[in-house]
Amino acid sequence: MNNAKLMSTDEVAGLLAAGHTLLVAGDRRALARLPRGSWIGGTIPYFMTEAGGVVDRDNVFANVLPPDMSLDSVRLYDAGGLRGVYQDGPEGGASFIIIPASSAPHLAFAQEAQEYPGFLDKPLVGWISGVHLEDLGAASPAVVDGTTGEVSEDKAVVMHCRLAADRTARLDIVNLFTQGGGDTLTFEQAGFSVGEVLVNGVPRSFASYLTEKGIDTKLPLVADYYGAMINVSFQAVDADADEVKLYAPVFPGVEYRIAAPVADYVSAFAAVVPDEAEGASFACNCILNYVYGGLEGQRTKGAVGPVTFGEIAYQLLNQTFVYLQLA
């Protein structure tokens, strides 16, 4: 991907001065050094680069919008306003979204995006901003509207873009996880926090089930959406509180299974990621894949972008590589 790379804030300032429109990921202090201009950004210091996975608090990762894509508008959305996100962009265009982790818009989008008016009408791609893992609890994820300089911890930032008339944008995902051969797990209520699970239809404590079965919670829950493997990742299992916390909500009526193990993330990823992902206009991968897959210093077949606290391809995803390409 030659339109996206890790660069200094001075280089980014130069691109903005030259009239480019950018999507930027970086540490909060690095983003604060950028001038106002045609860009949106989100906080994160982890990146997949051509040289491999890196942690960098000084440089930022910038995607230059391709020539056939142009800025329509930039907006900040609160949780309620996000309901209109699919309808606000131009017809035939695509939109980029960044949401601060654990903010009200994050929770709302995760649970309600599928019911937003115009859901799937146009590609909506992006990520959940985060912090250095050493700063969890001490620093807050944020997003930036570069056109105004506004930094927000409780709003999503969206860049709506137009596309040249002869181009279309296609959004796709690469998920290494598939459903394992274990129990079928269903839930009667939607939520990020779960007390009770139905195991093959029989209700029981989810925390006890995971503990007694010795489930490796680095493996996500996986649902099969007509061939799309959709993950829900585990955040914590609290046996005392009888509660399981998740990084995305489970939904009633959806059948989940614990994922089959992936022996080596890097080689497995290289085997399945399509060549087209290397030329993507935008891509991102999950912090859990970065950490659990040992991606620091490892190349992922030329697939580059920010490493995120959640991925968005129309809806919230976990432990998934997301990419947008123009055709």
Binding site: F119, P123, L171, Y225, Y226, G227, A313, Y314
Partner: peptide, 10 residues
């Protein structure tokens, strides 16, 4: 097609 998969699920 990803969007078709998600629509069918919904």
């Amino acid at each position: 097609f990803l969007a078709l998969k998600l629509l069918m699920n919904r």
